[in-house]
Amino acid sequence: MAILELKDVSFRANSTGILNGLSLEIWEGYVHAVVGPNGAGKSTLANVIMGLPDYRQHQGDILFEGQSIKHLNVDERARLGITLGWQEPARFEGLKVSQFILASARDKNREEVDRVLELVGLEPVRYRNRAVDKTLSGGERKRIELASILAMKPRLVMLDEPDSGVDIEAIERIFEAIAHLKQGGTTVLLITHSARVLEKADHAFLICSGMLVDKGETARILEYFSGKCLPCPHKNVPDLNSLRKTGGENA
């Protein structure tokens, strides 16, 4: 069953079309990926689904569990269980890691803070009382943001470039946390242009220039993305005719 459905969603910024008539369905309980080259519109798609203030003016509709959420604010969507992990997480001067996690947590207690920090591979005693500010490395901030998402126990989470700025060892912990989210019944949408993240998905969407080019089993999309997209000279201008010939099922 689709937990989230996009119906012909288009979004323009400064008269440039960033998302161009996107329709897709996200099935509940799976790990999905949105893959595409730099500038394809992946982050924009996530921001539109989350309903961030600068991304509310779009065409088409977005349904969550069959109901339109187009008119809802960020926090109203979050209270339905939708959340987003940013490509570049925010810093919060003076706010402690524990306060930050507790703010989103369903179970508001110390044990929960420690549990989610452990899940992302950060030692609670070392991190609980630190500030979520510039003294944390990019990878640490990414993992603390993921910890806050684990504490929130969302229905649907979009993770924008979950591996960016994170070292090899920490990436494994992030992958474990994603598996944990799935086990707990959270639907995951990974946003990435990296093959190693894509591999963790059950199902993938390939987007280019704000259009859905292909969708299906991860292995096939990965092969297509690596073979055709990465070397593609068109830079976000999908060659729709050649796609049809090569059998991209949705182009």
Partner: peptide, 17 residues
């Protein structure tokens, strides 16, 4: 900062909170 605000609102806090 608007990103801080959006991050917390994306976890379900109201704008005031």
């Amino acid at each position: 900062d608007s990103k801080q605000l959006q991050t917390l609102m994306a976890r379900g806090l109201s704008e005031d909170e």
